[in-house]
């Protein structure tokens, strides 16, 4: 893999029960890029993401995050890895019993020795970054789905991670809110140099943000295409990739 890779997955094999999901998965994510994981519904995009953040363990193979091996990591290494990543879950997964600023404060209170006033300021700054400072004292149930996702990004960024994992950021959002979220991702990458790993299947979003994509496939249990999205759209010969980028139904004749 490239020398500047921040995530390196090698020969990962995994699945559920007796069912194999990925046979031999290898790929790398370069520092500072927006890396998008694509694939049809049910091909294991979110599951792959959960492997990368250590919620699931693969059957075999290795996952290297920022120079540390995740699969065989002991508790201290695992914590060290987790400190360098942030995750936004599909529905935001904000803690329902806390308001927005308490949600963002939580990791700061748990992992830093900042005085209380500083924690408050940092949390407010993160909320301001995603445009939600006015809603700091709202509960998650009192704001819209798009705002909840932005708040979740603010919480994921609380400890200034090097990598942000986003699970379907634009799912269930209108095109305008979705475009705003894309803009936010690009801005954070530009100004803070964060590496993004994004699971999505919104075409517009992919072309707006992705530097590089991989396309997963249920049938071959692996990666069927890898590269910048525009190149895949224009040059790929794989029928599934072509259909995906040209929004064609499965039985339509390949263009």
């Amino acid at each position: 893999m490239a020398a500047d890779a921040i995530i390196t997955v090698e020969h990962m094999r995994t699945g559920f029960g007796a069912q194999v999901l990925f046979e031999d998965l290898s790929f790398g994510v370069a520092r500072g890029e927006v890396f998008v994981i694509l694939g049809g519904s049910g091909c294991g995009k979110s599951t792959l993401l959960k492997h990368l953040i250590g919620l699931y363990s693969p059957w075999s193979g290795s996952i290297d995050i920022a120079g540390m091996e995740l699969v065989t990591a002991d508790e201290a290494t695992r914590l060290a890895i987790l400190r360098r990543i942030g995750v936004m879950y599909q529905q935001g997964a904000l803690f329902g019993s806390m308001n927005l600023i308490e949600n963002v404060r939580l990791p700061l209170e748990e992992f830093t020795r900042l005085p209380d006033a500083a924690v408050e300021a940092v949390a407010l700054a993160k909320l301001k970054l995603v445009g939600l400072d006015r809603f700091a004292f709202h509960m998650p149930s009192e704001i819209s789905g798009g705002m909840r996702k932005r708040a979740a990004i603010a919480r994921a960024m609380a400890l200034d991670p090097e990598i942000l994992f986003l699970d379907e950021p634009s799912a269930g959002l209108d095109p305008i809110t979705s475009a705003e979220l894309d803009e936010l991702i690009l801005q954070l990458r530009r100004s803070l140099g964060i590496t993004f790993v994004v699971v999505t299947h919104e075409l517009a979003s992919i072309f707006a943000i992705a530097d590089r994509v991989i396309m997963l496939d249920k049938e071959t249990r692996g990666i069927i295409a890898e590269g910048p999205p525009a190149r895949l759209r224009d040059e790929s010969r794989h029928p599934f990739v072509r259909r995906f980028f040209h929004r064609q139904a499965a039985d339509a004749p390949a263009a």
């Binding site: 919620l55 400190r83 995750v87 879950y89 599909q90 748990e110």
Partner: peptide, 17 residues
Amino acid sequence: GTMKVNEEVDALTTMGL
């Protein structure tokens, strides 16, 4: 249980809590 279903427990775990 509801926190688990809403992935809030996963969120805690990935925060290192």
